[in-house]
């Protein structure tokens, strides 16, 4: 019990952010029309590409060869996630846009 309390105290900021973000995530998208499910999923997919920041940090401080190689791969994969994700989402949404301007 003591350990748990200590853990919570130690990471109180992160826990606070996590709890608030969970509610925020639910609230922000709970009224989305079915039409937008696919683009929204794709957009969210791009946002979790934020993991790339982690890979940059790892890569930025890697010294030996193996971590460098792994870090390099991680940066590529993360970039693929970010760039690919946003571009695909944009392409999907472009089509919605077209009919809007036509109206």
């Amino acid at each position: 019990m003591d350990e748990v309390l200590k853990f919570i105290y130690e990471y109180k900021d992160a826990i606070f952010i996590i709890i608030l973000s969970v509610f925020l995530g639910v609230e922000v998208i709970s009224h989305v029309p079915a039409v937008l499910h696919t683009p929204l999923m794709s957009g969210a997919n791009a946002i979790h590409g934020v993991v790339i920041i982690g890979s940059i940090i790892v890569m930025g401080h890697a010294q030996e060869l193996l971590p460098k190689i792994l870090g390099f791969i991680a940066v590529i994969l993360g970039t693929l996630n970010v760039v690919g994700g946003f571009v695909v989402t944009d392409r999907m949404l472009e089509m919605f846009k077209k009919k809007k301007t036509k109206k």
Partner: peptide, 15 residues
């Protein structure tokens, strides 16, 4: 990373 990740985690679950 924390907010972005959790946001997608919860929004993705609801989706």
């Amino acid at each position: 990373m924390l907010t972005g990740g959790i946001l997608v985690g919860s929004a993705g679950t609801i989706l």
